[in-house]
Amino acid sequence: MYTIKKIVDKEEKARIADEILHMLPDWFGIEESAQEYIRESKLMPFLVAYEDETAVGFLAIKETSPYAAEIYVMGILPQYHRSGIGKQLFDACYQWCREHNMEYLQVKTLDYSNEDTNYAKTRCFYESMGFRPMECFKTLWDEWNPCLIMIQAIR
Rank of each mutant, 00 (worst) to 15 (best):
Met1Lys: 14
Ile4Asn: 04
Ile4Pro: 07
Ile4Glu: 03
Ile7Leu: 01
Ile7Glu: 02
Val8Met: 04
Ala14Pro: 00
Leu21Trp: 04
Met23Lys: 14
Pro25Gly: 07
Gly29Ala: 06
Glu31Asn: 11
Glu31Gln: 13
Glu31Met: 07
Ser33Pro: 00
Gln35Trp: 07
Arg39Asp: 13
Arg39Ile: 06
Glu40Trp: 02
Ser41Phe: 06
Ser41Gly: 04
Met44Gln: 13
Met44Cys: 00
Leu47Cys: 00
Val48Glu: 01
Val48Phe: 04
Tyr50Met: 11
Glu51Lys: 15
Asp52Phe: 09
Asp52His: 09
Val56Asn: 07
Lys62Val: 03
Lys62Met: 12
Pro66Asp: 02
Ala68Ile: 02
Ala69Arg: 03
Ala69Glu: 03
Glu70Arg: 01
Ile71Met: 09
Tyr72Gln: 08
Val73Gly: 04
Val73Ile: 13
Gly75Met: 00
Ile76Gly: 06
Pro78Ala: 04
Gln79Lys: 11
Tyr80Gly: 03
Gly84Ser: 10
Asp91Phe: 01
Ala92Phe: 04
Arg98His: 09
Asn101Ser: 14
Asn101Gly: 13
Met102Asp: 01
Glu103Cys: 07
Glu103His: 10
Asp111Tyr: 04
Asp116Gly: 05
Phe125Gly: 05
Glu127Ala: 11
Glu135His: 13
Asp142Gly: 02
Glu143Asp: 14
Cys147Lys: 06
Gln152Phe: 03
Ala153Phe: 06
Arg155Lys: 14
